[in-house]
Amino acid sequence: MRVLVTGAAGTIGRAVTLGLLDRGHEVVSLDRVPEPDGNETPFHTVDCADADAVAAVFAEESLDGVVHLAGHPDEANLPDSLASHVLTTAALLDAMVEHDVPRLVYASSNHAVGRTPRRELLTVDARPRPDTFYGVGKVAAEALLSLYADRYGLDVVSCRIGSFLPRPETVRHLSTWLSPDDGVRMVEAALTATAPGFAVLYGISANTRAWWDLEPGRALGYEPLDDAEQFADTVAPAAQDDEEAAHVGGPFATPTYYRPALDRLA
């Protein structure tokens, strides 16, 4: 497949780009930052919130799918969160419809359900319970993806990513870790699954202590191979562990992240 990867210069973007290339796919890279040193793919310096610039990329490149990883990865006010996660997704979806690109894989987040109390294995049928405006942006983007899947027949897979890191660093990560290798496996499965329509999966590795159900991902061909438990002996307990385990969003569900939706002058 010839795939556009947005946010290609970011941490997960670099891993996914290299992983897809290793698996024989062609990658076209897009990011709002300049082309990084060592890049070997066609690279477009474009802000995904600029619909005209996005459309121009689609007009120039022949694409089979999109992996949308771009977006501010932390909390912001509500307008900025919606712009970063929803408006960028809208620009891509409109360009996909215009240029007959049928497949999108979206980097959603566990924070779309982060305010869910931590009790038992969480399924994709759980209602959205965002823990932050970041999470609200991911929920709204998922709703937009659902609309375009129903309206235009696009195949879209929303990957609610846990903790994408080289290795787990906290006790919570032993449950939420997504290894770089499994991240690539997840994206490729979402790109190549047969007619998923609108689908949601949880983006974590095969963790012994997993908080989220992996079966929806397996139904799409995602078979994670790594397990955070191999690092359990290297992760030291910390004072905040119990607080971070109270909700599936961990620290994002704590008062540290409470803020008004709108920034106003005093």
Rank of each mutant, 00 (worst) to 15 (best):
A107W: 03
A107S: 15
A107L: 06
A107H: 03
A107R: 02
A107Q: 04
S108T: 11
S108H: 06
S108P: 12
S108I: 12
S109Q: 07
S109P: 14
S109C: 04
S109R: 10
N110Q: 12
N110S: 06
N110C: 02
H111T: 04
H111K: 09
A112G: 14
A112W: 12
A112L: 10
A112N: 08
A112H: 10
A112E: 07
A112F: 10
V113L: 11
V113G: 02
V113H: 03
G114E: 07
G114C: 10
G114N: 09
G114R: 13
G114K: 14
R115I: 00
R115M: 13
R115T: 00
T116K: 02
T116E: 15
T116V: 11
T116M: 08
T116S: 09
T116R: 04
T116F: 07
T116G: 04
T116P: 01
P117I: 12
P117R: 05
P117V: 11
P117A: 11
P117E: 09
R118E: 02
R118P: 01
R118K: 12
R118F: 08
R119I: 00
R119C: 01
E120D: 15
E120L: 03
E120T: 09
E120M: 02
L121A: 11
L121G: 12
L121F: 08
L121N: 10
L121H: 11
L121D: 05
L122K: 03
L122R: 06
L122V: 15
L122Q: 09
L122C: 11
L122H: 11
L122D: 09
T123A: 07
V124C: 07
V124E: 13
V124H: 10
D125L: 10
D125F: 09
D125I: 14
D125P: 05
A126E: 15
A126Q: 12
A126Y: 15
A126T: 13
A126R: 15
R127Q: 13
R127T: 13
P128W: 01
P128R: 04
P128G: 03
P128C: 02
R129P: 00
R129I: 00
P130M: 08
P130C: 03
P130N: 05
P130Q: 04
P130E: 09
D131K: 05
T132E: 00
T132C: 00
T132M: 00
T132S: 14
F133A: 00
F133E: 02
F133V: 00
F133M: 03
F133Q: 02
F133I: 00
F133C: 00
G135D: 07
G135V: 06
G135L: 13
G135T: 05
G135A: 06
V136I: 12
V136P: 08
G137M: 02
G137D: 11
K138Y: 01
K138M: 03
V139A: 02
V139D: 03
V139P: 12
V139I: 06
V139C: 06
V139K: 01
A140N: 05
A140F: 01
A140L: 04
A140E: 11
A141V: 12
A141Y: 03
A141W: 05
A141G: 14
A141H: 06
A141M: 08
A141F: 07
E142V: 13
E142N: 08
E142H: 08
E142Y: 05
E142K: 06
E142S: 10
A143Q: 11
A143E: 14
L144M: 13
L144W: 07
L145T: 10
S146A: 15
S146Q: 15
S146E: 13
S146F: 09
L147V: 14
L147K: 01
L147M: 08
L147S: 08
L147E: 14
